[in-house]
Amino acid sequence: MLPVLIFPQFDPVLVHLGPLAIRWYALAYIVGIVLGVALLRRLVRLVPRVATVEQADDFLGWVTLGVLLGGRLGYVLFYQPEVYLAHPLSILEVWKGGMSFHGGALGVIIAMALFTRRYKLNFLAFADRVTVAVPVGLALGRIANFINGELWGREAPATLPWAMIFPNAGPIPRHPSELYEALTEGLLLFIIMFVASRRQSVREQPGFLAGLFLAGYSCARTFCEFFREPDAFLGFLPGGVTMGQVLCMPMLLAGVALMVHASRSPVYTGLPATTPDTGA
């Protein structure tokens, strides 16, 4: 039998600045959003153009609000509504954790809808560029989950070379499911999205890349849920499924529908060639 790995005791706080503490989890959100917008600046320049670089920069504030508000409210409503409704002020205690990807996704969709309406942009074409960058943030977020020693996996065979004992999960070896998600929802999905986005014929079908992301994430998350321990306050739902898998089902259907719709839509030619681009 191979020796079981012991979870390294990471400090969830990266650095203390007097009374302030910068946590790895917060840093993952900040770096993920900044890197995502930096990539978006390059993607909007591709033909057909969907926005200016200046507009991509402006989207930084919109997407930040969408991720934070949507992620937090999604967790409150999807996972523990009775707890937070009984103690509404605790909704503001984001430093204690509690963010939902599915809620964050809804927040970003709303932010994109408002943003593209304000600037008179094609919503689906802009969403295609945004979703290519999203897996970067997902990978960083899951790595931060691992550093925090949270969202660990189900019991794993002790013979599994990377089976790990987490400090707050008892003495049994577990799957490091956070890393599984970082590799599948993050790295693998980013490679698929990036390679697909390099084809102009794909970029000319508004909604295809967004649909590919929704379907790809749903498949990756559903797969990883088979190795991830369900939240203690929820457990398994009827049929042995998890809340994460249930929330992925409508995403998968929406993703397939978007790809089918995009493949049947007219070719998108993008912004006029004379559209000013003031970004550096």
Rank of each mutant, 00 (worst) to 15 (best):
V195K: 14
F233W: 01
L271T: 01
E204I: 04
R42N: 15
Q55H: 03
C224A: 13
F227E: 06
A113G: 00
V136A: 01
L77K: 07
Q245H: 05
L121W: 10
T269N: 11
A232I: 11
L183K: 10
E229G: 06
V202N: 07
L138E: 01
S90Y: 10
P230Q: 08
Q205I: 02
V37H: 05
F59L: 13
V260W: 13
L271S: 08
Q9E: 10
L160P: 05
N168M: 05
L187A: 14
Q205R: 11
I109Y: 07
R198A: 13
L151S: 06
C224W: 10
H87E: 13
F208A: 14
F208L: 14
L252D: 00
A86S: 14
R142H: 12
V47Q: 15
R42P: 09
F166Q: 09
G66W: 10
L189T: 03
F101T: 03
F213E: 01
I33V: 09
W152G: 04
I147D: 06
G216E: 11
V37I: 15
F233K: 15
L85P: 03
F7H: 15
A280E: 14
Q55C: 06
R264G: 09
T274I: 01
T274R: 14
P167K: 05
L40Q: 04
V260K: 06
M164P: 02
L183W: 13
A196L: 15
P19D: 08
R49P: 10
G207K: 14
P88Q: 12
A21N: 02
G279R: 10
L237G: 07
R49Y: 14
H175K: 11
A86T: 00
L77I: 15
Q9S: 13
L68A: 12
V67L: 14
A144Y: 01
V267D: 12
L258I: 06
L20S: 12
I110E: 00
L247R: 07
F78R: 05
L237N: 08
H261N: 13
L20F: 15
V267S: 15
T52M: 09
G97Y: 05
L35P: 05
L106R: 10
A139V: 08
T131K: 02
A38M: 11
L68F: 14
Y25G: 08
L188D: 08
L212D: 04
R174S: 02
A125T: 08
L39H: 00
A254Q: 01
Y25H: 11
I191V: 15
F166C: 05
M164R: 03
Y79L: 06
A156K: 04
V50I: 03
Y25F: 13
A56D: 11
N122P: 05
R72A: 13
S100K: 07
W152V: 02
R203Q: 09
N145V: 00
P3R: 08
A125E: 04
V260T: 00
I22T: 03
L43M: 11
G270A: 07
C248G: 03
A56S: 12
L5M: 12
R264H: 07
I91M: 04
G235S: 07
Y75K: 06
F223H: 08
S100N: 10
Y180E: 12
Y268L: 09
T278M: 01
C248Q: 01
E181A: 09
M249E: 08
V202L: 09
T184E: 08
R199D: 14
E150P: 13
L92W: 01
Q80M: 13
P167W: 05
V13Y: 02
